[in-house]
Design a protein around this nucleic acid. Structure first.
Lengths: 194, 194
DNA sequence: TGTGCGATGTCAGTCGCTGACATCACTGTA
DNA sequence: TACAGTGATGTCAGCGACTGACATCGCACA
């Protein structure tokens, strides 16, 4: 896939993250990103379907990890544990990219437009999880609910992980979230609630 | 606030929903909506911050209902029950607008762009709920988690309510969702799971 | 009758995004 | 070595979303 200068795509991702952090998403033009990456605006849009997508280039990797974990779960495991374990399995991926993830997270949080795109990715992920839970024999409505709960736990866990500067593993926050939820539901489990 | 012809805003909402249903969101221009409503494109953008927002004109009403219910909950009630009851309290509002809600829901589901906006509104709602749970003395992390769970339950409940043609009250789906969740968490509660 | 004000219309312009077409760098083949 | 094929890139024209600036209209109130 070599071309003029190699890794045009990677240069665009870096340029975009830098520019969004410097000037903000709205004040950054697609042409600005392309120029800093040494390509044309048209080329930018050939690589990314829209201006936001440049920050979500690796999001399918996470989805693949989660889905693979769901599909690989042993039979008989409680569905909620299947999903939470699936999210916990992404910890290694994120722990190794903590610095990038934190910068990216700050940029996304600062833009309503980018937040919308992130929420959509999470919703797509929830739909995929539900689908694969159904394939495990779980009722459709229950599958959708469990998938949503899993995404909710992950979202809160991720925010805390970022907020704490990624000092502990993301996995710890995910499993703590499940314990917290069980406590809140007045289950016979650990008590972490306030 | 009467002007030339009264209720320009309402006319634009109706025109937009009709056009989106007929041609789809992407194939409808802001100018098309404005023309059918008898105003100018510029006027459309004075009433709505962007093309999508025309379908979310009443979304603050729902948020107000939920937040008021959270604030009005008796002290000592379990946080998860506070939130689920808050969502259940919107049932009357939606039951009375079932036809509109169903049409609107179909239009939104057909457009990725509109789905993103809806997800953002729900996320804003979750953030507001969490904030008001904190005001009730609940720990921040737990508040965020419970708010996310509440939104997840509501989302699934709403989808089922629409899917069933609004034959039963939305409230029934919301409370059933909570029972289902408790069952999934292996709590001492009703068993609705598969 | 006239004056103030808020809602609307008009116009020009930027930016996101796309289709169509030419061009460039590299690859394989004769 | 020369040449054709292929995929990524550059160029250009154009639509639609959105915005700022300014003129105008209709109503209320003195």
């Amino acid at each position: 896939m070599g071309r003029w200068e190699p890794d045009a795509r990677g240069r665009m991702v870096t340029a975009a993250l830098d520019l969004f952090a410097e000037r903000g998403f709205d004040a950054t033009t697609a042409g600005d990103i392309a120029a800093r990456a040494g390509v044309t605006e048209r080329t930018f849009f050939r690589h990314f379907s829209d201006k936001r997508e440049v920050l979500f280039d690796g999001s399918s990797t996470m989805q693949d990890l989660v889905i693979a974990s769901v599909d690989g779960a042993a039979p008989g495991v409680q569905p909620i544990d299947v999903v939470v374990s699936a999210f916990a399995s992404t910890a290694e991926f994120f722990d190794g990219r903590a610095e990038f993830a934190i910068r990216r997270s700050a940029v996304i949080a600062a833009s309503g437009s980018l937040r919308e795109r992130e929420l959509r990715k999470l919703d797509d992920l929830a739909a995929a999880i539900a689908e694969h839970l159904v394939a495990r024999g779980i009722d459709g409505a229950a599958a959708s609910l469990i998938a949503e709960i899993g995404v909710g736990i992950f979202t809160v866990a991720f925010a805390q992980w970022v907020s704490d500067g990624a000092t502990r593993s993301l996995g710890a926050y995910v499993t703590a979230g499940l314990s917290e939820l069980k406590a809140q539901m007045a289950c016979a489990d650990g008590h972490l609630a306030t």
